[in-house]
Design a protein around this nucleic acid. Sequence first.
DNA 1: ATAATGATTCGCT
DNA 2: GCGAATCATTATG
Length: 222
Amino acid sequence: MMQPLSVKDLQPVSSEFLEQKDTVRLARELVGHYLVHWIEGKAVGGKIVETEAYQAPHDPACHAHLNRRTKRTEIMFAKGGHAYIYLCYGIHHLFNIVSGPESYAHAVLIRALEPIWGRDFMDENRKIKSTHNLTNGPGKLTQALGIDRTLNESYLLAQNSPLQLFQPPAPLSADELMVSKRIGIDYAGDAKEWPWRFYEKQSLYVSKRLFGDKSFLRHEAN
DNA sequence: ATAATGATTCGCT
DNA sequence: GCGAATCATTATG
């Protein structure tokens, strides 16, 4: 059977990949990639299984809607590969990968992860029993990985970045992927219907599935 | 299994 | 002040 996947065997992503202008496509393609937070030389992270695209200027759900520049949104205008991490509901740190060329305020929210490396560290951070609840949500995964706003604005492609992104050994095929509307943006009018959320169909580590997969729900209850 | 609610801080009007 | 790209807990059927 397969050896456990080692970070050493993975290729970092390219700057071209993260600077592509089509951020919806990037969000789709990032599913299956690997995110690592290096903590005292140890890898903590896993496979990205759920993402959402946010794209100024025409996306009302994007913090930089209409290209509004504030202290908070400024980093979204940087070139792809920077981290945009902000505090949500006063409690949760949400991790985004800034994307597109410089001056394009685009980002991909990382919503769920399949835990692979540093499980002990994650368990300790999360203090929760079920492994299915470790990283299946944008606030949960940052807590598990120890990601907070001290890492805001860091550049993931820098030589010794504490946060790194790696390519999948093989790309995910189209039939392994699901598309849905984005979550938690009811205030965004029309845009709340846009199909800009992507997740791995059979993953047990997705935050919220579409209607109708009863067999999964039974599985999840364990 | 679904619904309601409190937590808690920051950005912005 | 208001509301937020969320989550855990509690209550109820």
